[in-house]
Design a protein around this nucleic acid. Structure first.
Lengths: 171, 171
DNA sequence: TATTGTTATACTCTATAACTATA
DNA sequence: TATAGTTATAGAGTATAACAATA
């Protein structure tokens, strides 16, 4: 870790949430740092560490709603694409239909979504947010925005923006 | 997905491995694409999708060695830092000591690593590669290089390089 | 035959707690 | 008290397979 990064983290440490983010990245004494060896040639290593860090902060920030990343992403897609089938949602998010079935059962149990019969294909269920689900999602979005702000502050606004552009350019 | 990306993927599709990578990203008909909604404001979503894609290709490419990403990273760190303790390896990679204990037991069962007593602290085990482990790691590295080449080709060399620089600049 | 949704199983990874043996 | 390592358990996520109903 560079001196500049440590300085930024020291400032970030004054915020409780960012303090937690700091600990996640593994802020050990310089003397204890091990050589990554060939690992620093692998994008997957860095992407995985970043992903774990981001998800931990997301889960912690969204804890008041008891909502995990996959659940949140499904709610957002139902909101943006009301009436979609499970198969369409699962394909769009890369979630196995078997897992999505259980996930939706949980959200239905909360009264947040409903499944309606579809005209023309008795196999499909059309997914919709219920009023309670819309309210819960609105509250969740506020927390998700806070999470994203924490992340941008931690990564640095410039680095966050660069990563977003690169990721979006790929899809 | 842009037209340019589809064109590149069509070319990449001539390679068997890249063809698999292509399918992973969810290459559906344009008409079936759903709106991501607020999800495209979240870096975590893109990072997660990329990480899953990368790990799938890694696992598939390293299948001849039956080696998963976490196991490979541990072998690399032992190689680069012979004599390190489990605690040090775990902290460096962000692996819980409980999980690392089982992971190392597996690698020891293959005859790839050994644990030696440490002078001065009877609690610690010093970790080393055995000859068979070094040979296995050498073979694994060749496959890992192939994986990384496939990834760079799939992402585009420029995007791969930009991501690497951003990730390394953060640590 | 293929697709939609469901249930079930196995495995990996994460998060804890409890325990021992050392320091 | 704290640390190093181990064992155990619970939950999330992934990967399959099998099945019923429907196309």
């Amino acid at each position: 870790m560079s001196g500049a990064q440590r300085a930024r983290l020291a400032v970030a440490g004054s915020d409780r949430k960012l303090g937690l983010l700091q600990r996640e990245i593994g802020d050990r004494a310089e003397s204890e740092k091990l050589d990554l060896g060939h690992l620093d040639q692998h994008l997957g290593y860095f992407v995985r560490r970043l992903q774990v860090m981001i998800f931990r902060d997301f889960i912690r920030t969204l804890a008041p709603m008891t909502l995990r990343p996959a659940q949140y992403s499904v709610l957002l897609l139902i909101e943006a694409n009301p009436g979609s089938s499970q198969a369409a949602i699962g394909r769009a998010l890369g979630i196995e239909r078997a897992r999505l079935a259980r996930l939706l059962h949980d959200l239905q149990g909360r009264g947040w979504i409903e499944r309606r019969a579809v005209n023309g294909d008795a196999r499909s269920h059309a997914l919709f947010l219920r009023a309670e689900g819309s309210r819960a999602l609105a509250r969740s979005k506020k927390l998700a925005v806070r999470h994203e702000q924490q992340l941008a502050k931690f990564l640095g606004a410039k680095r966050w923006q660069s990563l977003m552009e690169l990721m979006r350019s790929f899809g």
